[in-house]
Amino acid sequence: MSMARHLRKAVRLPLRRRRVDLSHPARSPLGTSVVNCVAYLDGARQSGACPAGEAIERVRRAAGGFVWIGLHEPTEAEFADIAKLFGLHPLAVEDAVHAHQRPKLERYDDTLFAVFKTVRYVEHDQLTATSEVVDTGEIMVFTGPDFVITVRHGRHGSLGPLREELEADPGQLAKGPSAVLHAIADHVVDDYLAVAEAVQDDIDQVETEVFAPRDGERGTGDPGRIYQLKRELLELKRAVAPLDRPLQQLATQPMRLVDPDIQKYFRDVADHLARVTEQVAAFDELLNSILQAHLAQVTVAQNEDMRKITAWAAIIAVPTMVCGVYGMNFDHMPELRWRFGYPLALGVIAVACFVIHRGFRRNGWL
């Protein structure tokens, strides 16, 4: 007996399952939402496509292996027969069909139900105040002693390439459904790392525009873009942060449905998730600092404008005062009838304005 089969027998649970009649076509659990349905024995994919009922019967007759069924956004009617066939809990089924769940790990009798938030970086030529940066979806995973059911929601997160990678490593796949659960968790967290690196490039671009303006001009960072990055970063944070506890449970708590060898791999995934969590927290603090710096720059620019306005108002006050005095039209005023009074008044105004202007220029007000 191979070591992989020995481990599966060690963790196999005594099950009492109802046999479902699959002979009637109307009761076939496959629907348009099913992406794939494959049986695996000793880590090897069994040839030929077959309905879920036939696949699970084939696996149970062989006393080993498991069935992997992949679905994409199934309806309640499409998922009902599969839920009945594998004895899935109604609460978990409801979560899987309606989606919009937080990352979590729940146990229902002999089934583990895990929810993962998938993320994808949305490419854009230029970041604006309305740019979509992070697109999110969901993957729900039902894991039992002899089956894995994945339910995917969203426009991305296809598990086809992941399935091919696992099939290329029969030794890992022979460890049972928990190997698939680990591969999905590792795939999701790797996407977190890739998205975090891409978001960092956007943050660096905004930071450069705020702190390193071109040609001696003021920083031109758009606060709308900074707020948009914070909103998109919040989407990433909602996907990353709640996943920490489920991964810690899978990595540290003994579970009959998780192979002990696979549990070691979950520790590595948890470490990667911790790295992403730290990055997201650092990005949030950095964006707060950038926003505060931008607001400070705006305040400084307003103060500079106010100083210029005040300086020009002081210069204009000199001719206003002189003209106001000589515009009072009294009969007895000094030099009122003098031939050179008008040119002298203009000269005094010009000299006074020049002196005041030069003083403001020296002090940096103009």
Rank of each mutant, 00 (worst) to 15 (best):
Ala77Pro: 02
Asp125Lys: 11
His124Met: 12
Glu94Lys: 15
Gln101Leu: 09
Ala96Phe: 02
Gly64Met: 05
Thr75Cys: 11
Thr130Gln: 04
Leu112Met: 13
Pro145Phe: 14
Ala80Trp: 12
Val119Glu: 05
Asp81Thr: 01
Thr128His: 07
Ala63Asp: 15
Thr128Phe: 03
Phe86Trp: 07
Thr136Ser: 11
Phe147Asn: 03
Ala63Pro: 01
His100Ala: 09
Thr128Tyr: 03
Val134Gln: 00
Thr118Gln: 05
Arg102Cys: 09
Thr111Ala: 08
Ala114Val: 14
Ala80Gly: 08
Val148Phe: 10
Ile82Pro: 00
Phe66Ala: 00
His100Asn: 07
Glu73Phe: 14
Leu127Ser: 13
Ala92Phe: 03
Val122His: 06
Trp68Arg: 14
Gln126Trp: 01
Ile139Gly: 08
Ile69Asn: 03
Ile149Val: 15
Thr143Ser: 03
Val122Leu: 11
Phe147Lys: 00
Leu85Phe: 07
Asp125Thr: 10
Ala63Ile: 04
Arg107Val: 04
Leu127Asn: 03
Asp135Ala: 14
Phe116Asn: 02
Arg107Gln: 14
Val119Cys: 08
Asp81Trp: 05
Lys104Glu: 02
Ala80Glu: 05
Asp110Ala: 11
Val115Asn: 02
Val93Pro: 00
His98Gly: 02
Thr150Met: 04
Leu127Met: 13
Ile69Glu: 11
Val122Tyr: 03
Thr118Cys: 06
Ile69His: 02
Val119Pro: 03
Leu71Tyr: 09
Phe116Ser: 11
Asp135Trp: 08
Leu112Ser: 00
Thr75Val: 06
Tyr121Ile: 05
Gly144Glu: 08
Thr118Pro: 04
Ala92Ile: 08
Asp146His: 02
Asp135Arg: 12
Pro103Asn: 07
Gly137Ser: 10
Leu88Pro: 01
Glu138Val: 15
Phe79Thr: 02
Arg102Ala: 09
Leu127Glu: 11
Glu78Thr: 10
Gly64Glu: 13
Val67Thr: 07
Gly137Ile: 01
Pro145Tyr: 00
Leu85Thr: 05
Ala96Leu: 10
Pro145Glu: 15
Ser131Lys: 15
Val115Ala: 10
